[in-house]
Simulated scan of single mutants.
Amino acid sequence: MTTTADLSSLGVIGAGRIGRAIAVLGRAAGLDVRVAASRPPEQIRAEVEAAVLGAQAVSVDEAARADIVVLAIPMGRFRQLPAEALQGALVVDAMNYWWELDGARPDLDDPTTSTSEIVQAHFAGSRVVKALGHVSGYALEELARPAGDPDRLGMAIAGDDAGDVAAVGALVDALGFDPVVAGALAEGVRFEPGTELFGADAGAGEAREMLARFWQSQRGRVVSRARGGSRP
């Protein structure tokens, strides 16, 4: 079982609201936090250091060498990241597809697959786990709680490797949320935008119930129909 003791560094690619919030939580958990963006490190250093006390502004290559790397950039831009930079890395997909931001992208709006599977296909040499993307920005900034707190929120996790899911679960726990394992990476479709759990900021028990109800929801029926009635 992977524990927080096995994690010492966190790379965050993306210096927007979500990336900064995750970086702040990482520093609070005692991790060595490295933040990268599309701009060179020297151009983001001042804002990163002002927003995240103790974090380092680094290149994408440097962020990718952390124990776990979180992708927190607009989803329409993930293919701009060189796949070789993340070769072998454990990557947390915290991205979501928004047509308002990303534009109309049929390649990212395919109900026959999950967006995290599309990310995994691009970063074929990496190990992708979906997490940290379905709670609100406010929840990441204000609602993290210590283990055992009755108001702690649940955080869904989906991934194909049990060890990687355990590692991300340890990270989620360290950041202040209860890990809720949804299943394989394909199951990430159950907490993408348009699902009941997305943005719900629910406790772990309620999050599990929402995941279980997915296939009876409108979005679940659309996905099931597109897949010929099959489920992941």
Rank of each mutant, 00 (worst) to 15 (best):
A124H: 05
G205Y: 01
E42K: 04
A55H: 05
V24G: 12
L171T: 06
N96H: 04
V52W: 11
E117P: 00
F177E: 08
L101S: 07
L211R: 01
E209I: 00
A226Q: 05
V168M: 02
G76T: 10
G169T: 10
P82K: 00
D173Q: 13
E206G: 00
S38A: 13
Q120Y: 02
R79E: 14
D109V: 00
G154K: 05
L71Y: 06
L10P: 09
G148F: 07
R225N: 12
L7T: 08
G103L: 03
A21C: 05
G14D: 08
A147M: 04
D151F: 02
E192K: 12
A23N: 07
D67L: 08
F191T: 06
E196K: 13
A207W: 08
L31Q: 08
Y138N: 14
D201P: 00
A23H: 07
E117W: 01
A29Y: 10
G194P: 03
L175V: 08
R190S: 10
V135G: 02
Q218V: 15
V35H: 11
A212Y: 02
G220T: 12
Y138E: 14
S38G: 15
E209V: 00
G148E: 06
S217A: 01
R219M: 12
V12K: 09
W99R: 12
G169L: 07
G228K: 03
L171D: 02
A21G: 11
A36R: 06
Y97W: 11
P179M: 03
A204I: 01
R79L: 09
G125T: 03
I73T: 15
A212Q: 04
P146C: 03
A182G: 07
A21P: 03
E84D: 15
G19I: 01
P106F: 13
V223D: 00
V24T: 15
P179W: 04
P40A: 02
R105T: 09
R213L: 03
V165S: 10
A139F: 11
A158V: 03
P82L: 01
A50G: 11
S59V: 01
